[in-house]
């Protein structure tokens, strides 16, 4: 269909103008800003912006201890939370999908609740549940004779509270994605394997898991993009502490930009984050291709 320019503009221009102003131009601006020193004084006088080449990047990569710490924290969350979310979602989906299971819609809705709930609101509850002195969790532990730690203020346990919260929130939607994928695995294949004498576990590992590979890849990539941008959970639960043991990369960027007003430096960290997300996603896609 050949279209006249006037109707094309009518349909396309609102979105294109908004996407240019708030997506494409800001991405370009962020690249430019990352090569400059832009402090709070630039808000009043743009003359104070100075070109610094790749200094921001060398500073981040070679000298910024806090960035290293934030990167490490974010990677710890990713490598523990991602497999855990995938494994739990898949297990729960298999259990709910079983022909023997009753109340499956109750489970579906119940598991989904954390995902639609506001992170700030649920973090507020978890903060109290995990409180070392007044929290329900340590109370329950004390009933069985365990003296629970100060979960949120202990340097070694704080990161695990973050992992627990993101996994808890991530299970529901992915369980549902796996349930949809499971229902498309043909019964005939599983039945044939059963006749051949394969046990339930063998059928699961040899047939179901490989057939779910595209779903697993999709879920893993979505999770890694999300987990690498961790922000709200540590912001609310621990505030990044204690001693920066839960500061994430996005939190670091937020602090650099909106607390210390180092806009250029913060932009450079955000570009580094983009490259990390890009690289890790590519690696994950390559892994799938190698596997098949």
């Amino acid at each position: 269909m050949k279209t006249n320019l006037r109707s094309l503009l009518f349909f396309l221009s609102p979105a294109l103008i908004l996407l240019s102003v708030f997506l494409l131009i800001p991405i370009g601006a962020a690249v430019y800003m990352s090569f400059n020193k832009i402090g709070v004084e630039a808000l009043i006088d743009p003359q104070t912006i100075s070109f610094v080449g790749i200094t921001n990047y060398t500073q981040i990569i070679f000298h910024d201890e806090l960035f290293r710490k934030a990167l490490l924290n974010t990677v710890i969350v990713l490598v523990i939370a991602m497999p855990l979310t995938v494994a739990l979602s898949l297990s729960l989906a298999v259990l709910i999908n079983s022909k023997l299971t009753k109340f499956s819609s109750l489970f579906r809705v119940g598991f989904y609740l954390p995902a639609i709930s506001n992170t700030i609101a649920v973090a507020l509850v978890w903060k109290w549940l995990l409180n070392g002195d007044y929290g329900l969790i340590n109370y329950l532990l004390s009933l069985v004779g365990i003296n629970g730690p100060q979960w949120l203020t202990n340097e070694h346990t704080a990161i695990f509270t973050i992992i627990m919260l993101v996994v808890w929130k991530g299970i529901g939607p992915n369980t549902i994605l796996y349930m949809a994928a499971l229902s498309s695995v043909p019964d005939s294949v599983k039945e044939a394997a059963e006749i051949d004498g394969a046990s339930a576990w063998q059928r699961f590992i040899k047939i179901t898991v490989p057939m779910l590979a595209p779903t697993t890849t999709y879920i893993s990539i979505m999770l890694l993009i999300g987990y690498l941008q961790l922000f709200e959970e540590p912001f609310m639960l621990t505030g990044g502490g204690p001693v920066n043991s839960t500061t994430s990369i996005v939190m670091l960027i937020y602090n650099e930009a909106f607390k210390y007003f180092n806009f250029g430096y913060a932009s450079a960290i955000s570009m580094v984050l983009f490259f990390i997300i890009f690289a890790v996603s590519l690696i994950r896609i390559k892994l799938t291709k190698l596997g098949s």
């Binding site: 708030f22 997506l23 494409l24 131009i25 800001p26 991405i27 601006a29 962020a30 800003m33 808000l43 993009i225 690498l228 941008q229 922000f231 996005v250 960027i253 937020y254 930009a257 909106f258 806009f263 913060a266 932009s267 955000s270 570009m271 984050l273 983009f274 997300i277 890009f278 996603s281």
Partner: peptide, 15 residues
């Protein structure tokens, strides 16, 4: 652009 983390755009957009 869907691969680009939101925080990249937020700094220039804030300015």
């Amino acid at each position: 652009t869907m691969m680009v983390p939101g925080v990249v755009m937020q700094i220039p957009t804030f300015l």
